[in-house]
Simulated scan of single mutants.
Amino acid sequence: MRTSDYFKPDFLEKLMREQAPESEIKVQSVNQFPVDNSASILSTLNAGTTGQEIGHFGLEVNFLKDGKTCSRRMVMKVKPHGDVTSGMLRGLAEMNGEPLTSIYAPFTKLTGFQNTHMRELKVYKKLPASLQPEIFGLMEDRPNNIFLVLMEALEEVDLLNSVMKPGKWTEEYIEEALLKIAQWHVAHIDNNNTLNKHYWSRDVPSKKYMMKLQPLWLALLKSAARNLPEVYTKENTGLLEDAIEKIPTYWDVLEQQPKTLIHNDFNPRNICFKNTGGSPQLCLYDWELATFHVPHYDVVEFLSFVLIPENYDQRLKYMEYYREELNRLTGRYEDGEDFQRIFAYAALDFGLHRLGMYMMAHSISPYPFLPRVIHSYFDTLKQLKYLLP
């Protein structure tokens, strides 16, 4: 099938009927409208690499549902196979030069991107939740290596694509995000039986995994320090060099901690807030990097993105707000200092893995937000330095 075939009324009708089998649906017409793809990093980086159109496509769908006339603006997300994304990232590694050129290849399918084509589909299908966008259809088109998500168009919402506007993240928005992600984490803590483990079999963080990839973490760090020395100072780089050596030590502790399904891309590029007439309601999308880790990990990332130097002093307050909700729901996080220690260990993983991969891409196609985020991240380590291994 051509990509354009996915926008035809009969195809969308089939998709929507499969998603809502309890309803009688008849699609009458479909009109396309433009959608900005620039906020999707993987879509942007993959553009032109597959010979197929991938990305986000706006569709105004007019249909009958149980005899009632409906019209909804939707977005069709056309995803590439994880092989394509992993291969693209290997190309970026080679473009970075040494040491990544020599080091990256054996780890190509182990950096968390190999199953991005399936993880998001499985999360939406098996674990629907109120904090996700409304999903109208899902499809695995294996012969054509295209994977589809038909979701609501996120319009008339707050803080959509706000990664360049951290000043707009007020206390109300930050606390709503922390509250809802805590509830998600608790709902899935110590429970990965719902999802097909095949798509989470090789690259879920663990002591063994983090030690196996030690050469890659060091190569990513050296490359980042070369490309962004004003943020990766000698002191900051030293913190992560030390972390690489101490992976066995801090992962001995992390291995004993409860794990949950984390979003693993929990930041303003994938967050907005719906207005329901009362307080803002979190909407969290793009679940393709979802994996299993300590729940603290998502919060490390989130606060690195939304805090600016003027409110770095609020980081511990927001950590405590999140801890209190986790503990209220589970009774397992009463010790505040122990919680901060695990938070610090999760931060080490985030710096080595996600920020290392971000920097690899940034050096080829710069992300204006990234230096600010990494600066905020290193403030996390400085505030918790006394707890590091």
Rank of each mutant, 00 (worst) to 15 (best):
S86M: 06
Y285D: 02
L218W: 01
R226M: 12
R73K: 15
F11W: 14
Y209C: 06
A129L: 04
S40V: 09
I189P: 01
K109E: 09
I181Q: 08
F343H: 07
I189W: 03
R328G: 12
F369Y: 15
V163D: 10
N193F: 01
Q114A: 12
I308Y: 11
N96I: 02
K126E: 14
T3N: 09
I25H: 03
G356W: 06
Y124I: 04
S40E: 09
G278M: 06
S363Q: 13
F63P: 11
L92E: 13
T111P: 02
L59A: 10
E13S: 08
L154N: 05
L148C: 08
D286G: 03
E24C: 07
L348C: 14
Y321E: 11
I135A: 04
N267Y: 15
L352H: 09
N37P: 10
T260C: 04
I41Q: 11
T276R: 12
M357Y: 04
D36E: 12
L326R: 03
R72K: 15
L216K: 07
Y386Q: 14
A20G: 02
P371Q: 05
L239V: 14
M357K: 01
A290F: 00
D313H: 13
Y250C: 05
L59V: 10
A20N: 12
S130R: 09
Y297T: 06
R372Q: 12
V253K: 10
R315V: 12
C283T: 14
Q183E: 15
Y250Q: 05
M1Y: 05
N267K: 12
L303Q: 10
D141Y: 00
F369A: 12
A346D: 08
K122C: 03
L89S: 06
Q281E: 14
E235G: 02
E152W: 04
V35I: 15
A129H: 14
H198Y: 08
Q340H: 10
A153C: 15
R372W: 01
G137T: 09
